[in-house]
Simulated assay, not measured.
Amino acid sequence: MSRVLIVEDDDRLRRTLAINLQARKHEVRTAADGRTALELAASFGPDLVIMDLGLPDMDGVDVVSTLRRRSAVPVIVLSARDGEAGKVAALDAGADDYVTKPFGMEELLARMRAAVRRAAPAEDTATVDTPTLSIDLRAKRVLRGGAEVRLTPTEWHVLEALVRSPGRLVSGRELLQEVWGPSYGDETNYLRVYMAQLRRKLEERPGSPRHLITEPGLGYRFEP
């Protein structure tokens, strides 16, 4: 059982989601607008937020950004905005996943489990140290040479997916689905862009990376 905050201005969908999650023993609170959502997030302390972007009082992306500044609670966005720009904006604001309406309840439940699992790494893999980097998965924090490196939420998700299995080759499809969701698998340009950004921030020599390794045609690997 976990505490779930549902932020959705459609009364029918909000009730449907609440009933389904309560039937699965989740403790649920609901909000129909962004201001109420932020107030409940502070008082209720949810383990997960499910949020629509089309809210009546403020843009859902702004709510996501505010939530992310305040806590590391996983956020799954539900939205009828299916364009790439909308997804990228939500993910870069701090959303952990993006589900396009209409959606199936089982898919949403699977996304919820994955988001909560990513947010709570096993104790023995919570910190990964290399001669130049210290990566704290629980605090979502990276130090390079003792100085904190600021990563966007999407950059962090890509790095985290690799760091969780050091030395293991992660296929491009697996990495895409882990970070962007199960409907992705062929958008290799996403990975090229974000891996290049991570190397610029984390590698001493981005052109000859030591930690973030590409295996052409196969995938990517994190070497401690």
Results as ranks from 00 to 15, higher is better:
Ser2Thr: 14
Ser2Trp: 09
Val4Ala: 02
Ile6Trp: 01
Glu8Thr: 04
Arg14Phe: 01
Arg14Thr: 05
Ile19Asp: 06
Asn20Lys: 13
Asn20Cys: 10
Gln22Phe: 07
Val28Glu: 13
Thr30Phe: 01
Gly34Glu: 01
Arg35Val: 12
Ala37Trp: 04
Ala42Leu: 15
Phe44Thr: 07
Pro46Phe: 08
Val49Asn: 03
Ile50Met: 08
Asp52Tyr: 08
Leu53Lys: 05
Asp59Pro: 12
Val61Trp: 03
Asp62Pro: 08
Asp62Trp: 00
Val63Pro: 02
Val64Met: 08
Ser65Ala: 15
Thr66Arg: 11
Ala72Thr: 10
Val75Gln: 10
Arg81Met: 12
Gly86His: 07
Gly86Phe: 08
Val88Asp: 05
Ala90Gln: 02
Ala90Gly: 05
Leu91Phe: 11
Leu91Val: 09
Asp92Val: 04
Ala93Asp: 04
Ala93Val: 02
Ala93Gly: 04
Asp97Cys: 12
Tyr98Trp: 08
Lys101Gln: 12
Phe103Pro: 00
Met105His: 05
Glu107Trp: 08
Leu108Arg: 10
Leu109Pro: 09
Leu109Cys: 11
Val116Gly: 00
Ala122Lys: 14
Thr130Arg: 01
Pro131Glu: 13
Arg138Phe: 10
Arg138Trp: 00
Arg141Ser: 09
Val142Gln: 01
Arg144Gly: 13
Val149Asn: 00
Arg150Ala: 15
His157Phe: 04
Val158Leu: 10
Glu160Ala: 08
Glu160Pro: 11
Leu162Gly: 02
Val163Tyr: 03
Val163Lys: 00
Pro166Arg: 10
Arg168Ala: 14
Val170Cys: 12
Val170His: 13
Ser171Val: 14
Leu175Met: 06
Glu178Asn: 05
Val179Ala: 10
Val179Ile: 03
Trp180Ser: 02
Pro182Gly: 07
Pro182Asp: 09
Ser183His: 15
Thr188Cys: 13
Arg192Gln: 15
Gln197Trp: 00
Leu198Lys: 01
Leu202Thr: 03
Glu203Pro: 11
Glu203Trp: 00
Arg205Ile: 11
Arg210Asp: 10
Leu212Gln: 11
Leu212Glu: 00
Thr214Trp: 02
Thr214Gln: 02
Gly217Leu: 06
Leu218Pro: 12
Tyr220Ser: 02
